[in-house]
Amino acid sequence: MSDTEMINKNKSRFSATAGRIMMFKETPLILVIAVAVIILTIIKPTFVVPGNIHSILLGSSFELIIAIGMTALFISGGFDLSVGSVAGFSGIMVGIMLSNDFGIGFSIIIGLLAATGVGLLNGLIIAKLKVNALITTLAMQSIVRGVIYVLTRGLGKPNLPDEFNVIARTSFFGIQTPIIITFVLMIIFGAIYAKSGFFRQYYFIGGSEEAARLSGIRVDRLRVGVYTFVGFMSGVSGLLMASRMGGAIPTSGQGMEMNVIAGCVIGGASLAGGEGTMFGTFLGILIMAIVVNAFNILGVNIYWQRLILGLILLVAVLGDTLRKNKMHKA
């Protein structure tokens, strides 16, 4: 082999590797985060201090836990707007139980059951009765929030027992428990989404419901399952929020669905179903959290924050749709 051939071969191997890295779906997201971090560090060196990074992760962990469920739902081609209300619901239920002197373990179970029950109800209505997912979960968002207000008469349940509050207020090796719980869950479910045979069925359902059905996949049952799972994860998130704050408030979780959905979509989950990864969602939520953090560091008016977050979501959905359209034209 001559030298030039060798060089060419090495070159092509290099470009192949570079191509592979670029082909890796999450690469653009990592680049966006890297660029954002560099720019923010230049503007405000305090951005990269461990304390700030820790607070970004802590702040996003409650959303990430819901997003674990939402990612699975997106992959199956589903959609849930009620997650914020459901998170609030589980927190309030725990608050009510605890303030009536029930045990912590029992109260937590009731809180999780309440959230899971709403998820199950969503799933049954959407998968079995074939009601539109958007409307069903929008209605459920309002219904559940209404139940919270009815149960509490609009008042929160403050001063929860320390034995409960300690759950989300402890740290190991300097890392707060919500972050640890979030990462453990993300790793477990990330592996399940990527590799388990059971979960692969959701990619098929999201890819083509009819083809999945004819392939012998129990579409309806699995759909009910994934909505129930989203309810459960929202419940876990709500519990941790209540524990972190040391009290359950009726407005807890309000508007959370927006950040969760935006994070999933930015992370590559498609509204059409069949696409999405745990890692992508993590990066998507992280981008949203960095943006919010940057707003706070830079002192951007709170009113502008919602506007810009909305724009980010719109751009992400637009990107997803345009990509899909282009693909279908080809």
Binding site: G197, Q201, G207, A211, A212
Partner: peptide, 20 residues
Amino acid sequence: TEGLFLDQDVKNNIYASAIK
């Protein structure tokens, strides 16, 4: 519309009914 998962690759289509 009823048979294939068009956005999935070839190998992921083939085992859709035989995940086990």
